[in-house]
């Protein structure tokens, strides 16, 4: 299939080579101005010296990266030891984002599968229902979540009233609250690509598998999952990457102890107290991690594609 598309493209390139360059121009301009240029600014800023009221002075230094990884004591003259504060924040971000991805997959896959197997005329309605929460701003939804999860919030109150618990559950300002916030924010990004993949899946193959003595579970594992894998991977990337850099959920639901990278970076640029080079350096480290991750995925995809 991929081969067919590629050969079709090469035929087109002979005829429309020039036109294609011009047609791609707007996209290249947008990408250049709004992605490539800002990233360059970030790279440069991360190697500059901080100004105390925000901003930078043009003196190249590695201080921002040094601050991230090493502790040199209060006055900066002690022997450098590894600085765990920021690495811990990164580590927490990674496992929070990872957990949110796994939970989204566990809930999102059955949901997507269910929607894709409904009669064609009701599927649009289901997809529409999935997207409804997204008509409301993420900030407002996260604040609402904060009220729901509060010690005296509706959730705790109803549990107390039923008598399941005798004291309110401490959920707000914990990692659990952050997790709930992340999972809730990004679940649809898991559901929609998987839905699209299952929708394209030819269910006669499931019939063929069960005809060939495969149980439902074996059919899912051996036939359905390999067929919809691209959608699953896309969904995982779409949940993991924004979760990693999220700052609303950790800020509003996690409190000061459950900091994630997004909040750390945000803080460096907010108001006058920030440290721009340090924020830029932290962003660069996050960006590199995400890029490495995506390249690993892309590499695996290409290997799988080469044999299909």
């Amino acid at each position: 299939m991929a081969g067919g598309a590629a050969s079709g493209g090469s035929v087109a390139s002979d005829t429309y080579k020039n036109a294609r360059h011009w047609l791609l121009m707007p996209s290249w301009l947008v990408l250049g101005f709004f992605v490539f240029a800002p990233v360059c600014v970030m790279v440069i800023y991360s190697f500059l010296t901080k100004e105390f009221r925000g901003g930078v002075t043009w003196e190249p230094t590695l201080a921002a990266y040094d601050q991230f990884f090493f502790d040199r004591g209060l006055f900066g003259d002690a022997d450098p030891t590894l600085q765990w504060t920021y690495i811990e924040i990164f580590w927490r971000s990674i496992w929070q984002a990872g957990l949110a991805t796994i939970l989204s997959l566990l809930i999102g896959f059955p949901t997507a599968y269910y929607i894709a197997t409904r009669p064609a005329n009701t599927r649009a309605l289901w997809v529409f229902l999935i997207t409804i929460p997204y008509w409301v701003n993420l900030l407002i939804r996260t604040v609402s979540m904060k009220f729901l999860l509060r010690d005296e919030g509706p959730m705790n109150n109803s549990l107390l009233n039923i008598g399941i618990i005798s004291e309110p559950l401490q959920i707000i300002n914990t990692n659990l609250a952050v997790q709930v916030g992340l999972f809730y924010s990004y679940l649809p990004f898991m559901v929609l690509p998987i839905y699209a993949a299952v929708d394209r899946y030819n269910f006669t193959m499931s019939e063929a598998a069960s005809d060939l003595y495969a149980t439902k579970w074996a059919t899912l594992r051996r036939i359905v999952l390999p067929a919809v894998k691209p959608g699953v991977i896309a969904g995982c990337i779409l949940v993991f990457v924004p979760s990693l850099g999220a700052f609303l959920a950790p800020d509003l639901l996690g409190g000061a102890k459950n900091f994630m990278i997004g909040s750390l970076i945000e803080e460096q640029f907010k108001g006058n107290a920030g440290n721009w080079p340090f924020g830029a350096a932290a962003s660069m480290i996050l960006l590199s991690m995400v890029l490495v991750l995506l390249m690993v995925f892309a590499h695996q995809q290409r290997r799988a594609g080469a044999t299909t």
Partner: peptide
Amino acid sequence: PHKRPVNTVFQNYA
């Protein structure tokens, strides 16, 4: 289907 000792050749092969 997976417990029936019959097999099928599908129209579009599957």
